[in-house]
Amino acid sequence: MDDEIICIGCGAVLQSDDPKKAGYLPAAALKKAEAGETDNVYCQRCFRLRHYNEIMPVDLNNDDFLALLNSLATKKALVVNVVDLFDFSNSLLASLKRFVGDNEFILVGNKFDLFPLNSRQSRIKDWMRQEANRMGLYPSKIFLISAARQKNLDELIEYLDQASQDRDIYFVGMTNVGKSTLINAIIDKMGDIKDVITTSRFPGTTLDRIEIPLENGHHLIDTPGIMSTNQLATRLNAADLEVVSPKKPIKPATFQLLPGNTIFLGGLGRIDYLKGQSTSFTVYAARGVKLHRTKTANADDFYQKHVGELLTPPTGENYLPALKGQEYHTDYKSDLLFGGVGFVTVPKDCVVKTYTPDKIGLGIRRALI
């Protein structure tokens, strides 16, 4: 259309309808641009990049992201896959092995600060490496960090500083893993400590990526997060996602159970204890997820009656797919995974059945704690 106004920073068509879409500009500012009162108009996202070094997520088509991935094998690059430690299996880009080529690849596990203080980093890294290897991915290095709290970043930054001397660094990841938050933290840290980042401007920002220039002539490149139906986070509304996402270290809640007992993790997860001895199950979930124990024989009726009210999140009317289950036998002390919600630690020799909406995020691993 002839009357479209383009952001000079990223090339997006300016619009004031949706802050989450590319090219957003508040209506008053857009009206000024349409009236010709302002020159060199930037969208809100580019404005915040230029003036506050802040990367704002924007909704983009997965095809754009995949096209960018397809080009990685032809570039000399370090590929950084940022993953959510509370939804690791579903936030790891298993398809990355097809795109990395001969490039080095590292894993960065975000939200480590939410694990209990007695968690062993070496154990978590070993588990991450084993899971990545199982998917055909072989990271040269694994880091555990907190992007939001800027913890454990110095070692990662030192590694990226060395790696960027002869290549660009591409950050890739699923939505909601904290990728942009991490890059914002890196910009802040590197700018303050080493003055590596040229913070005055961000030239060449485009719709499918953001290039952050380094003084050595290379770039940190933020790519759009890819959405997956295997992430429960992509199914939740904003209010429920806020509740599910932990903000503080998780406090474990321990229940003494007999076979025939059920625990609900709000309306998002359920675990039935089918066979075994009287024992304790320990739940690790965000503090806003309401935990309830009941008898398995009553569990279906209990859920139907209380989901969205006593069993929250979800709040209000239940908009999620029905709970579907998977049975597990624990050969050793194990964590039963409720991807994006939390996990439940159970001893060996237990038969359990776990549920989430449409079985999203279900899994099992050797206990990490």
Rank of each mutant, 00 (worst) to 15 (best):
N70P: 13
L368T: 14
S16M: 06
D17Y: 07
L96M: 07
S164T: 03
Q326M: 04
N53D: 14
T38S: 09
D349F: 04
F302A: 00
D192N: 11
S91W: 09
I263P: 07
D208M: 04
L291V: 00
K20M: 03
P116I: 05
E158R: 12
P116S: 11
V79I: 07
F281R: 08
A233Y: 09
N70S: 15
L257R: 12
A12T: 03
D102K: 13
E242Y: 12
G266E: 00
K194D: 13
L336G: 03
R235K: 07
I145M: 14
I210Y: 02
P19H: 00
L323Q: 02
N176S: 04
N103T: 08
A22S: 14
I142M: 09
K247C: 11
L368H: 13
D113A: 07
K32H: 12
Y24M: 05
V243W: 01
K75S: 06
V351T: 13
S228F: 06
L160I: 03
D192Q: 11
T205I: 13
I169N: 02
G267I: 00
G101W: 10
F202M: 08
R50P: 15
K32A: 09
V196L: 14
H219G: 04
V341A: 01
R287Q: 13
L258P: 14
S119A: 10
D300R: 08
D17E: 09
V244N: 04
S122D: 15
V196Y: 13
